[in-house]
Design a protein around this nucleic acid. Structure first.
Lengths: 307, 307
DNA sequence: GCGCGACATTCGGAAAACCTGAATCTTGCT
DNA sequence: AGCAAGATTCAGGTTTTCCGAATGTCGCGC
């Protein structure tokens, strides 16, 4: 039958031009070709379909046959498809639309929704996918290229990334309301070191920060520590009075506001770190990714909870 | 921007194959090409759109980017369009569907609707357009290629046509009921020739036939004739008793059935002519036209009114 | 009826696009 | 580190496509 996959866009466009112009010569002029070229295209198309597509009508002008009209309908659909495809690609290229996946470490889950909401409003055509996981998971995603951008407390060594600080990241000591140290202003180092500290596993950024802080104020004095899996359990344990904890301020804003937890004032607190936004060094951002990146930059930390 | 009209179906199909197969080599095998060929197609497509379309995913397999997905969507639409276009063309080619215009002379308007109804039932996918006009008009339409097929009483000299008889075409003498000659069996020639004959204009086929008939039975005796424009006025005049008329039987079946008119029995009546179906000699029928032609042939006049 | 002009069509050769096989480079895996 | 599969580049040959010129066809006006 008709060898449909040998059909060419050129052939279809020639048919359209001939039917629209009514003559080969005029069609050729429209297409910027010579009449023999158009003739050849039309001829091969008719051969492929084994059907006449045009006939000479009243005034010598070419008119499409039924088959020709069927082919022209297909050509119109194809033109529309290509047109809208080109528009869509252009939109993707300009970053006006696109999909961006943003990874945030668990600690960030308290501000991430706000950030995504900001982005959605500022860049409504950009689809931002939020993935929240612990630090290792986020790094893993970044390494496997599952993420365009990531936000975490401290850039990883690998994979190679470019990092940019995007806002302050204070760390504080928390206690349950009514705790003796909550009244002190400031709390004395030796009083602090007498407490039991609830902390995350070794390797956690917060844990490292806490260790450094306690070692500095205690000048080597040992302290008691109980290890817990997640920030949530730590918070519950502090509320229950099992001890105090060193923690990212952004993790506990809700509890501080509602009064279920309080901060301990101490010299050198809060410790200011930064949140970092990062992207792989070896992979260019998509245009949409770039716009999201720029927008987060411009927010200047405005998405972080304020006390 | 993107030079969209340089895009080729080959390029689009290469993209699809690569994304489906996950590798250039496999895609090349699918397409029956060599890997460099596929690579080149993909490369030019990416250059044309100025956008990356595939990236290497997890297991080294190629995955479409957002832009790639947009292009693939277009490719799918195009494939569908071409597919259905090919099906439609095939249907037109087989004659299973199509448009056929059928011209019938005014005299045929009493059986033409029946014929078209027959055709619609037998060939439901074929669109039959009926055009009714006087003989000159039908010939004109045929000459200007506005008709695929025509039915008339006698083929014209020009344009050149091939004609085929498709059924009997009896001509009779009619009178109003109660007319003296209606009782005779048979009516005598001299009685007939004493009547007033209502007839069409010179050149009309029926008029010529009538002239020949009366000259033969009268052997040269003159007769009286009144000329009228249309068969309808002739019928009304006969009913009103203004005279008798020689007319195509198919023109008056309704009036004969209802008794408003009666036939005159006479030697040599009815005169049997034929209906002819004709098509231009210099133009092949479309497949659908051929099927209509064959079907009318096969009907063998069954569409003609029976008494 | 005849020539004329516009246009379609055919033809030959040149230019461009395309494909292939071989060579080289990348990358993932053992 | 070496290996293997596959991507990419390259050079050469084949096919496709196009153009200019020649030829054929049709309609029109004289």
């Amino acid at each position: 039958m008709s060898r449909i996959d040998a059909i060419t866009l050129r052939q279809l466009r020639s048919l359209r031009a001939v039917v629209e112009a009514g003559s080969l010569t005029a069609a050729a002029a429209d297409l910027g070709l010579s009449p023999p070229a158009v003739h050849g295209q039309l001829r091969t198309l008719e051969d492929l379909l084994a059907a006449p597509l045009v006939i000479r009508g009243e005034h010598g002008a070419f008119v499409a046959t039924d088959e020709g009209r069927a082919v022209l309908a297909a050509e119109a659909q194809i033109a529309v498809a290509l047109e809208s495809c080109a528009r869509r690609v252009a939109a993707l290229q300009s970053g006006h639309t696109g999909n961006v996946s943003l990874g945030v470490v668990s600690t960030g889950k308290y501000f991430a929704p706000q950030l995504v909401a900001d982005l959605r409003q500022a860049l409504p055509e950009v689809e931002v996918t939020l993935r929240i996981g612990n630090r290792d998971a986020v790094i893993q995603w970044l390494a496997s290229r599952a993420l365009d951008l990531a936000i975490m407390g401290r850039p990883p060594r690998s994979p190679a990334v470019v990092a940019e600080p995007v806002g302050p990241h204070p760390h504080v000591l928390i206690a349950r309301p009514g705790h003796p140290l909550a009244e002190a202003d400031p709390a004395m180092p030796q009083d602090l070191l007498a407490e039991t500290f609830l902390a995350r596993e070794p390797g956690s950024g917060t844990r490292i920060l806490m260790t450094r802080f306690l070692d500095r104020i205690g000048e080597g004095t040992p302290w008691r520590m109980v290890e817990m899996g997640t920030n949530e359990t730590i918070k519950q344990a502090v509320i229950a009075g099992l001890g105090i904890a060193f923690i990212s301020l952004h993790t506990v804003t809700e509890e501080l506001r509602s009064g279920r937890l309080v901060t301990i004032r101490a010299i050198g607190l809060p410790i200011q770190r930064s949140w970092f936004m990062l992207r792989r060094e070896d992979m260019a951002l998509s245009p949409a990714g770039q716009r999201v990146h720029d927008h987060i930059s411009a927010l200047n930390g405005a998405f972080l909870p304020q006390l």
